[in-house]
Computed example of a mutant assay.
Amino acid sequence: MIQFPNAKINLGLQLVEKRPDGFHNLVSCFYPVGWTDALEILPAQGEASFTLSGLPVPGAPTANLCWKAYELLRKDFELPAIQMHLHKVIPMGAGLGGGSADAAFTLKLLNQQFELGLSDENLIEYARQLGSDCAFFIQNQPVLAVEKGDVFAPIEVNLKGWHLLLVYPNLAISTAQAYAGVSPRFPEKSLKTILAQDISTWKTEVVNDFEESLFPKYPVLAELKAQLYEMGAVYASMSGSGSTMYGLFQTPPAGPLPFPREYSVWQGVL
C-alpha cells in the first residue's frame, strides 16, 4: 500500500510567548500543499525493515519518524513485521513539515492496512507524541494552529485556484537555530482576523516572526522574498521556521524561473 505524504505552508506565524517547558506558544495557519514524498508499507516475509531513497536523510533509519510511528503503534497493537520504504522528495529543514507528514501518514497507513480501527482523534493523540505539527497531517486540512502548533481550531481560508511557487535555496535551518534568535510578543491584531481580510492586504499584515531574526543571518531569504514580489506574487513569505520561501500568484509566473539550478522548486495550483 502506498501513499504520498504532502507538505504544508504557514500563512503567518506569530510567536506569542515562551512556555515554562522551554517550548514557545505560537499562532499560525497551516495549509496543505501538493509537494509530496512517497511512502510504501508492505507485509514482510522476515524481520521488519525501513529503507530510504531520494534525498539523503541524516541519522540512522531507526531514528526516522516513520519508524518511530511504527514502533509507537506496536506498543499497543500486535502489528506484523513490515517492509517500509520512504522516497524523500520534500527538502528537510525547509519549514514544510515533510518529516511530520511522513510520520502522520505512517500512522494512517498502518491503521488502514491492518484495520486497527483508530479514529482521527486517536491518530491525532499518537501523532502528538511524535512531534508538534505531526497531528496536523492526520486530517490534513487548513487550521489555525496554537500552543506548540499541536492544538487546532477551524479557520475559513480558501486559496483554491491560487498558483503557489515554493523555492528552497538548499539551506537547511534547524528548529533550534530558528528559535535561538526570536523575541516572542503578543500581536496587536490576531492572525485569524488578518487572514479573513482580502489577500491583497496580507503583504503588509501577515508576518512570519522568524523572518525578523533569520533574514539578517541568511540574506538570501530576504532576496528571494523580494524576487517573488518582483515576479508578481500577491503575497510572499517564509514557511515555518525553515528556509523555504513561497509566493502566491493569481496566474503562473511568466517565462523561465530565475533560480539557481541547485535550488529545489515546486509549483502548482492550490
Rank of each mutant, 00 (worst) to 15 (best):
I2R: 12
F4D: 06
N6R: 14
A7G: 07
L13D: 06
L13K: 01
L15F: 06
R19S: 11
F23C: 11
V27M: 11
C29S: 08
A38I: 09
L39P: 11
L39Q: 10
E40P: 07
I41W: 07
P43K: 07
A44P: 02
F50W: 12
S53K: 03
S53W: 06
G54W: 01
P58D: 06
N64Q: 00
N64T: 06
C66L: 07
Y70T: 08
K75I: 01
K75W: 12
E78H: 14
P80V: 13
A81D: 13
Q83H: 13
Q83M: 05
V89F: 10
M92S: 15
G93E: 05
G95F: 01
F105P: 11
L109V: 04
Q112A: 15
E115R: 15
N122R: 10
I124K: 08
P142C: 06
V143H: 00
D150H: 08
P154F: 00
V157L: 14
N158L: 11
K160T: 15
K160F: 13
W162M: 12
H163P: 07
H163C: 08
L165A: 01
V167M: 03
Y168T: 00
Y168C: 03
P169N: 00
S174P: 10
A176V: 15
R185V: 12
K189Y: 12
S190G: 13
K192T: 15
D198K: 12
S200T: 15
K203Y: 00
S213H: 08
L214H: 04
P216M: 02
L221A: 05
A222Q: 11
E223P: 11
L228V: 08
E230G: 11
E230F: 04
G232V: 06
A236Q: 09
S237R: 04
S241W: 05
P252W: 09
P258D: 03
F259R: 02
Y263P: 04
S264L: 11
W266C: 09
